[in-house]
Amino acid sequence: MSENNWVNLFKDADTGIETLHAHFEGHAYDPHWHDSYLVGFTETGVQQFDCRGQRHVSTPGAVFMLDPGEIHDGEAPAEAGFTYRTLYIDPHWLEREMRVLFPDAASTAQAGFTQTLAMDPALAHAIAGAWDSLQAPELRIVRQGVLDRFLARLSPHLQWRIPLQQDPRLPAVARRARDYLHAHLTEDIDLDRLAQIAGADRFRLSRAFKAAFGLAPHAYLVQLRLARARHLLAQGQTPVQVASALGFADQSHLGRWFMRAYRMTPAHYRKRCTNLPD
């Protein structure tokens, strides 16, 4: 990791939105996902990332939009690196606010982005305004007005979809393994045992799982734990407590995986989201 890399993070208590401002040179972060919607724009440089089965190149002013759970990575193909701002938006907050703009959407529908990357200068400006408003000690009514303008600019990029209970495109063995990992994410799961539960040998399971979800089973389990770790840290639990609760060997083990995915330590994330001392 370059010594020129930096990350600034803040979490708004009212909306639960996390605001991130960061700069990276070279490799930024490994494939990972977030439980939140991710909306941001590239300020300077060239930002390259893989998502939805293709490589995207974001240049200054380009807006990137990811749904919860979408796997992505990041790197700087140019020596100067890239700088970007991002809003990590709580799904419950976004759905509640967006249903005011889409009153006819089915109650069981979920909002999703129609594209990953777009050149939309008005939306980029609205993201910057929302970012600044969430960072500043502003009157609530002023902040709500800024956020409403941001949501209005974001809405053309959203569509409402009815989620499938079981996606028929995914192999049954991969679905069964995924469901087991979600239900037992804190356990030290053996691949042979997982394959037995899924109804396949471990080699077939690994191939089917990666084809379906973009990660091998062990990497998927780590991402499940990291997503839960973010929630627990934001609630004020210490890195030691979180590592123990989620089945990591120790605090250092959690820290290594957390740094690879988010380029910050668990202690730094906790401090920025809770204002509690390390």
Rank of each mutant, 00 (worst) to 15 (best):
I71N: 15
T44W: 01
A111Y: 06
R169S: 15
R55W: 06
L38I: 12
D35F: 06
S58R: 11
H92S: 12
P137I: 00
T83Y: 02
G129W: 00
A122P: 05
A106W: 13
A78R: 09
R260Y: 13
L205M: 10
S133C: 12
S2M: 09
P266Y: 06
A174N: 11
Q165C: 02
M98W: 06
V222E: 13
A126C: 07
L246V: 10
L139F: 03
L232S: 05
I141L: 02
L66A: 11
D73M: 01
T15E: 10
P171N: 08
F248W: 15
V173G: 04
T108K: 06
M259L: 10
S36Q: 13
K210Q: 06
L134N: 00
A130G: 14
Q196E: 14
H23W: 10
H231G: 07
R202N: 03
L181G: 04
L9I: 13
P137D: 03
A118M: 07
A22R: 08
A183L: 01
R149M: 02
A212L: 10
A211V: 04
A105F: 05
A124E: 07
L276N: 01
G26E: 12
D278F: 08
A76S: 15
A118P: 08
L215C: 09
A174E: 07
T19H: 08
F258C: 12
L276S: 03
L224I: 07
A106D: 15
A128M: 02
F113G: 01
G199Q: 03
T116L: 07
A130D: 02
A28N: 14
S36F: 05
Q241Y: 06
I197A: 07
Q196Y: 05
V222T: 15
L158K: 01
R169H: 11
Q47L: 08
R225V: 04
Y84P: 01
L134V: 00
S252Y: 12
R270V: 02
L94E: 00
S107K: 11
S36P: 02
G81A: 07
N5K: 04
K210E: 04
R256L: 14
I197V: 15
L87F: 00
R85V: 01
R55F: 10
L20H: 03
Q165I: 09
D90H: 00
R178F: 02
D179C: 10
Y262V: 09
N275R: 02
E25H: 07
A243T: 05
Y29H: 11
L205C: 13
P171F: 06
L66C: 10
R161C: 11
M264Q: 12
P31K: 09
E79P: 02
F82S: 05
S58Y: 10
G199L: 06
V46N: 00
R161V: 13
M1I: 11
A261C: 08
P168M: 03
N5A: 15
S244Y: 13
D67Y: 14
D278I: 12
A118E: 14
M1Q: 12
L117V: 09
L194F: 04
V142S: 14
L154H: 02
P277H: 11
R55L: 13
H23K: 14
R260E: 14
R228E: 15
F113A: 01
S252Q: 13
T265W: 05
R228F: 12
L194N: 04
R176A: 07
V222S: 14
F248C: 12
W6Y: 15
A128L: 02
P60F: 12
A22Q: 03
A76M: 09
D190T: 11
